[in-house]
Design a protein around this nucleic acid. Sequence first.
DNA 1: GTGAAAGCGCTAACAA
DNA 2: TTGTTAGCGCTTTCAC
Lengths: 348, 348
Amino acid sequence: MKGFQVTLDDIAKKVKVSKVTVSKALRGHPDISAETAKKIELVAQNLGYYPNFMARNLSSMKSNTIGVIVPKIAHFFFSSVIEAIYDAAFENNYEIILTVSQENSERELRHIRSLLSMRVDGLIVSLSEQTRDYSIFQEARKRGVPLVFMDRVPGLDGFNTVVADDCAGAFSATEQAINIGYRKLAHLAGYKHTNIGRERCRGFEMALKRYGVHTNREWIVYGGFGEEDGYKGFMTLYESGRLPEFILAVTFPVALGVYRAVEELGMRIPNDIDIISFGNSGFNRFLAPPMSYVDQPTRELGRKALELTLENIRKKDQFVPQHIKLPTNLVLCKTCIKKGTAARRRTR
Amino acid sequence: MKGFQVTLDDIAKKVKVSKVTVSKALRGHPDISAETAKKIELVAQNLGYYPNFMARNLSSMKSNTIGVIVPKIAHFFFSSVIEAIYDAAFENNYEIILTVSQENSERELRHIRSLLSMRVDGLIVSLSEQTRDYSIFQEARKRGVPLVFMDRVPGLDGFNTVVADDCAGAFSATEQAINIGYRKLAHLAGYKHTNIGRERCRGFEMALKRYGVHTNREWIVYGGFGEEDGYKGFMTLYESGRLPEFILAVTFPVALGVYRAVEELGMRIPNDIDIISFGNSGFNRFLAPPMSYVDQPTRELGRKALELTLENIRKKDQFVPQHIKLPTNLVLCKTCIKKGTAARRRTR
DNA sequence: GTGAAAGCGCTAACAA
DNA sequence: TTGTTAGCGCTTTCAC
């Protein structure tokens, strides 16, 4: 094992300088003369030297590494955000250590402990659905680890957050539905204990109030954020016997669940029931019909979260929590662009 | 900075033992009496002690960490594989350090260097499209770092590989097309310099040969693995004036590109042109029509790759390269289940 | 411009 | 059962 590792000393001996000189030369420290540096680099190359990050980090007390925890990877939203985080980190010469909670708060906790143990320079967190206990984050703060919450943020003061403007996005989608004449609006609202569920629901309700549209308590259906939840949610609406004209789906998977349920019931979108989804997936244009959606700035979320973390690392002492809210954008495709025929029939 | 870190020594002083005792106790070493251990754990907890992995790893010469490099994240195939790798690593108490090449070989190289510098205990690699120079992998081997290639593997001897049975999968899809009566078969084949492109094409050609079906050189269209490539590929076929009856798409995105092109041309799947895709996306059932596909064992690929890496780490000395080929599975939905009407017309 | 000394926090080997 | 001694490979003073 020992023989395999080329160390600074090995190079030092070969060039006949001290290992300090080698260390400096390899990091481009201005102390070292161009000549010596050149010689050292050559030898390092020949020997196949790779700096040992663990040793480097241990002695310099920083890791050049940012820890990330997200609830899921194999989902369009998160994989897209993650990719943006990686790209931004790459540009800034930082390494990412990504972990996945699988929406499980215990697993989340364990991962965060690991990341702290790895002495990451900063932390980007998107909470699991389950998370209720935030003490680990207080702990991280106490230890001086810059922390940025992204998308799934806690209702806590004093932490950085980067989110999309969920409320405004839901508002504009709902507004669109009202503008084209719908008056019976439902919302498959996901979990109300998460910020995204709450905010989107708030946007939905704000629009109703703003336009004086009355809604039915039963038309706000809570559940989860997955396809199955969308399916069940629609079935609940259907079985209640009072179908709305329009549904705002809290996530794209939820909307897919609605598509599935609608198809099974032999109904048609947008004629029998119209819909807009919060978020999309790149596949949207292949849906029948392609769905209108609130576009989430996934890449910007990732990039901003990383940049904010970096900024915090650099100015650790003068920390002031920032709350970044990125705009969403309503994209109209083939749903909710004119009032459905069945709806027309019904409301007449 | 210094004050924030709780070290073994801090605990040792408080409990009035040596730091070695603390170290052992915290790692559950049998040397230490239950009583002392209990005391130590309590104090560690109170002080908010987090082991410093960098220090631990440096002195133990292992990192409990596996480096992974993939070409992409925001793709169904890879995000699904990655998630499986994470799950398997979690179960085995390993950390994953994931990096993304974005299909760029320079970036790939830089990441691998980083991972080696981090002294990962093992490496899982899925090559970028561009990669032609494999010397870094020879280098890794020389340094004794267990290495497993996954899905995108090099044509190199002496390395572990974990792949899906691309050839057999393509064969069975093609066979299906032949069985239901098609004789004009095309293949949008992706890059021929990658193993997956080559193997899938080989399966396609094997089936043709086996059933004595003659194909047209122009009906094997090379390109890339993305949606745009599928779109262009189909347009190429279309413009040639000799449309096939059936297309085997080398990836799901390529198939989507075909769907798009077909729709734009006002044609219909499966009547005017039939198709099977290699791989799917969980979204397939929402396509119009839902596409038949060769199911790739994404989760098994990830899991196997991790397990093989672990096995290699454990038995480093007795290394024998393994080549694992996981079975694929043809899933029939609404395409290529009976001969299309237009096709029938044409071949009569 | 270069290097000696000290130490980062931890673990492994060996003594007591 | 516990502790002593020596590093792991690197960086950071601070002298020369």
